[in-house]
């Protein structure tokens, strides 16, 4: 059986809020290392990969591999019934028809119990290869969100150009053009504003802003975001969570536009 207790319901609420517009039905794969999810969007150009390691939970117990097939719209409806600071416990049997969620208020003697009906989801699960990226950019997640939102007002796509010590976000639209450059920046006083660009070779790729804006819904999960780029492989957008957990998005570059 599965029993996984989260100190704060907000983590799961934010994860589901961030991915539910990309993927609708998906399996939450539970085993003794934690809870994982991998799903492609309907158009097969973007992929979500989530890993909530067992250390994220306290306690965490999962004796067997269990796949919880959940409709994310339903999941979000139930998670909205939890306060952000509630303690959240997920429970399921070894061959479950439902997943149970218990929300406990740490301040009040309130316990809320919900069940979500599970579904059989036949999802193709392909391994994501370990990749050496040509450019890895770490920047404030709020900054990346603002850039994507601003540029999406002008254009459907953005070119991300990484070169030594600088990264440029460029768009060309019907009403005009836009470009934002960020340089390596490190501050001891405000480390949350640091920008770090690691480069083995310059790389420039174009991506759909619609997807990037969608990925940025995860900004509330982490103060910084990591962008990894290489020619001819999907962009990796990673939000690191506590205990080595993560929420990752992959997006194929546009070619020939």
């Amino acid at each position: 059986m599965l029993e996984a207790r989260l100190e704060q319901a907000s983590i799961l609420k934010k994860v589901v809020d961030a991915i539910k517009d990309l993927v609708q039905d998906c399996n939450f794969d539970c085993n003794d290392s934690g809870i994982a999810l991998q799903a492609m969007d309907n158009s097969h150009v973007a992929l979500v990969s989530m890993m909530l390691k067992s250390d994220t939970f306290s306690p965490f117990r999962c004796d067997r591999n269990i796949a919880l097939g959940i409709n994310l719209n339903s999941f979000q409806k139930v998670l909205r019934c939890a306060q952000n600071e509630d303690i959240l416990t997920l429970k399921a049997d070894d061959s479950p028809d439902v997943v149970s969620l218990v929300f406990e208020s740490s301040e009040q003697d309130r316990i809320s119990e919900y069940d979500i009906k599970l579904m059989d989801i036949d999802q193709e699960h392909l391994g994501i290869p370990d990749t050496e990226y040509a450019a890895t950019i770490t920047m404030p997640s709020g900054e990346f969100q603002r850039i994507c939102r601003d540029l999406s007002a002008l254009s459907e796509s953005v070119a991300i150009e990484a070169e030594k010590n600088a990264v440029k976000f460029v768009c060309n639209g019907d009403i005009g053009n836009g470009a934002i450059s960020l340089r390596n920046h490190s501050s001891v006083e405000k480390p949350e504003q640091n920008v770090n660009i690691e480069l083995s070779e310059p790389v420039a790729l174009t991506f759909s802003l619609k997807y990037l804006v969608n990925f940025c819904k995860a900004s509330g999960l982490s103060g910084s975001v990591k962008l990894c780029l290489s020619n001819e492989v999907p962009l990796l957008v990673e939000y690191e969570l506590a205990s080595n957990s993560y929420l990752r998005f992959y997006l194929a570059p546009k070619i020939g536009d």
Binding site: S43, V45, L126, V233
Partner: peptide, 14 residues
């Protein structure tokens, strides 16, 4: 979109 799908396929299947 076809190219984008292909890039993904090659990436995931190695």
């Amino acid at each position: 979109k076809i190219f984008q799908k292909q890039i993904f396929k090659f990436f995931l299947e190695g």
